[in-house]
Nucleic acid binder design. Structure first.
Lengths: 102, 102
DNA sequence: TCAACATATGTTTATTTGTTCATATTATAA
DNA sequence: TTATAATATGAACAAATAAACATATGTTGA
């Protein structure tokens, strides 16, 4: 174990990836990757219930992957960090390459 | 949804991250990041049962994150791909920054 | 062949988790 | 204040899953 600090860091790392480990959350993240989105729009785009979207957004926000901004009745969500895009891209690269060489 | 291809790709992406979403598997990956390791050594290093390690290694291998090489009775495992290190590093960056700014 | 070692694989169990449904909060307009 | 729209939250349920235990497979040497 070289570059790892504590066990706590490993747990945090696993927590982070666990968030990305759900297709629904991935879709939600992609939906807001270029434009901030309100909850209802996300639900409409992904054909999900408002409740389900809201639950997942809470998880994403708690994990600091997403930030929110209230405008009237609506709440707009966007990625909190550019790491979100970076992590998604890195994973996507792996998936894409996996399709060719095997 | 811009750079995404099919729904299948999203599912594959989620599958990939799900693998990283477990502290045990992260530890296993780190253990073999610089040197290939046999099952028993990993179990010893991480204080886990041989069975548990073997089960997790199977998951890692099925996901193409890890490759194996037999040498006599022992089987040595190593990351299959440099994406493994890249993905771990990217996640680690996020975790490390998350500690400071909040 | 047999024994010993290394690894793999079923099976069961306890825990985690995503969704649904119902209900609560928050904000706007009349 | 009352009605309505947007979002959040709580509880219950079903599906996924990591660990433990027992057992099987494979390899080497006598």
């Amino acid at each position: 174990m070289d570059g790892m600090d504590t066990e706590k860091t490993v747990d945090e790392l696993a927590e982070l990836f666990k968030i990305f480990g759900d297709p629904t959350r991935i879709r939600i993240l992609y939906a807001m990757l270029d434009t901030e989105r309100c909850v209802n729009d996300i639900a409409g785009l992904l054909d999900m219930s408002q409740s389900s979207v809201s639950h997942q957004l809470r998880i994403l926000k708690t994990s600091k992957l997403v930030k929110s901004r209230r405008e009237g009745k609506m709440v707009f969500y966007a990625p909190d960090d550019d790491h979100v895009r970076a992590i998604l891209n890195m994973g996507m690269e792996h998936v894409r390459e996996g399709e060719s060489n095997d």
